[in-house]
């Protein structure tokens, strides 16, 4: 056994490195969530559209990406994007593309399930009072679907936030990589990894409690 010494974290050079790292983590997660949601919604709408070829393409995309490990996808784009662009683009861009394309597959499934969770009778009822298909979707189906899926979308966002730690494999300086740099430089592996775990836990636990509270509230309203 040995003495734990967490003072390493508060050394100014270290704490600013960690701060840069966590900002990177949030930036990557934020952009990936937004991008993933947009692409995911698009994929979900293709999927439920009654045009066979489009829904098949969407389904193939989703199933394909869901069958792959995220790390492999990160490697793919780390390797592929510079090849396509024809010049080095840096880890951030390629990783961001990988995350958006990967997470969109998961978001699309959540959104599709949300829309499917609204009973068919609701669409029929909306059509029965004379609304068009688009209007029925816009005013009746989607608002209900959105309510049902918001907590799951938020939970997926927390998972994505945790997933960003995988950029470790290409050395992008996120929170974990910054901590690891300090850990190796100052020989404080134990303290740094415990600190990283604690920070992730506090952030994710708080966020998941928030989601739970939100879910309870909308359940009560329904």
């Amino acid at each position: 056994m040995f003495e734990l010494d967490f003072s390493v974290i508060v050394i100014p050079a270290n704490s600013s490195l960690l701060w840069e790292g966590i900002k990177m983590t949030f930036l990557l997660a934020g952009l990936a969530i937004v991008g993933g949601l947009i692409l995911g919604t698009f994929l979900a709408l293709l999927r439920i559209a009654k045009i066979p070829i489009l829904s098949q393409i969407s389904a193939a995309y989703v199933n394909f990406f869901r069958s792959l490990p995220l790390i492999l996808v990160i490697f793919w784009f780390f390797f592929l994007v510079p090849l396509i662009v024809g010049r080095p683009v840096g880890a951030f861009t390629s990783v961001l593309v990988a995350f958006i394309l990967f997470e969109a597959a998961y978001y699309s499934e959540i959104i599709r399930a949300g829309i499917n969770s609204v009973r068919l009778g609701q669409l029929a009822a909306a059509r029965a009072i004379g609304l068009t298909y688009i209007q029925s979707m816009r005013y009746v189906v989607l608002p209900q679907a959105f309510r049902a899926m918001t907590p799951i979308l938020l939970t997926q966002a927390i998972i994505l936030f945790q997933d960003t730690a995988l950029v470790y494999v290409v050395g992008l300086r996120d929170f974990l990589v910054s901590a690891e740099i300090i850990a190796n430089r100052d020989q404080r592996l134990v303290e740094m990894f415990l600190f990283v775990a604690l920070v992730y836990f506090v952030l994710c636990f708080t966020a998941s409690m928030g989601v739970k509270y939100y879910q309870k509230r909308i359940n009560n309203e329904l």
Partner: peptide
């Protein structure tokens, strides 16, 4: 479930 698997 609130700590990334990699960190674990």
């Amino acid at each position: 479930r609130n700590i990334p698997l990699l960190v674990q």
